[in-house]
Amino acid sequence: MHNTTSDNTAGGGASGAKRPRWVRYRNWVQIAALVVMNSYFLSWARGFCVPALNCWACPAAVFSCPLGALANSSIAARWTLGQIPWYAVVPVYILGTMVVFSALFGRMMCGWICPFGWLQDRLAGLRKNHWRLPRWLGYSRYVILIALVFAVPYLVSEPWFCKLCPQGALQGGWLQPIVNPAVRSGIGAFWWLKQAILVAFLVLMVFIRRPFCRTSCALGAIFSLFQRYSLWRIDFDKSKCVDCLWCVAACPAGIDPRREVNSHACIGCLECTGCPFDAINSRPMWQPRPRAVETSVGHGADGDDSAQ
């Protein structure tokens, strides 16, 4: 890890000259999403999976955590496989919900409505310079998804992603003991382990932009599947880029938008679209790509064959 250069934004909240007006309200959208997801009185909606990391152990949570639901599905599959057809144990409802969101918005949920993402943005704003992460660490999310959400819960009948999740330690681990005295008697070594993981990530959030999203979020890994082909796109125009690194400083995910917009690491926050030289723009797929635009890239071409 080493320091970034000229990273002078507050949690990615750069003020781009030509950034679409609605992108400037991203912080307020994130706060609104946090409130809606934890609005308590809508608790009849808990059968719906929210496309963000919002722990359902939070006393005020009104939606289901898709990762918790998937881990529980893996546990249920172990006990029902053999009794019912194999295709009946596939959690098509949960996966279908995530695929729809991913196909339409890629990882924009990470950048716009995830409460844990919002927390990371705010803590990153405490420092001007941030450490960079090796790119290969971005693939650990997929290992965590397969291992802790699917394989290990299936094998040991315990939702191990939930057991280690720092968002659960924050929302459930603190709020449940406060509002539910009966829970306090269960606090032991494991609660402290979860809190230690939470504290470690909170500290890292100050020094590294979005460390949880980039290394550990299994939900982000699911959304990454269609990031490159999603309805909402970001275009990079190489001919307009002067390598001023404005976008690198503005990116709350700590990536280089010149090379990685629409890649699996991009969280779709659109902060980079404030490029002072108009080199980065966003568009829905139904709008034609501007003629001069090379293409958005991310470890190579984005696979979009809709060139004019």
Binding site: P177, V183, I187
Partner: peptide
Amino acid sequence: GIVFQWAGTLCTSCIGLA
């Protein structure tokens, strides 16, 4: 309904309870 049931059950793993 299954997801609703799971969400309505206190998740001890999420909280970190023994």
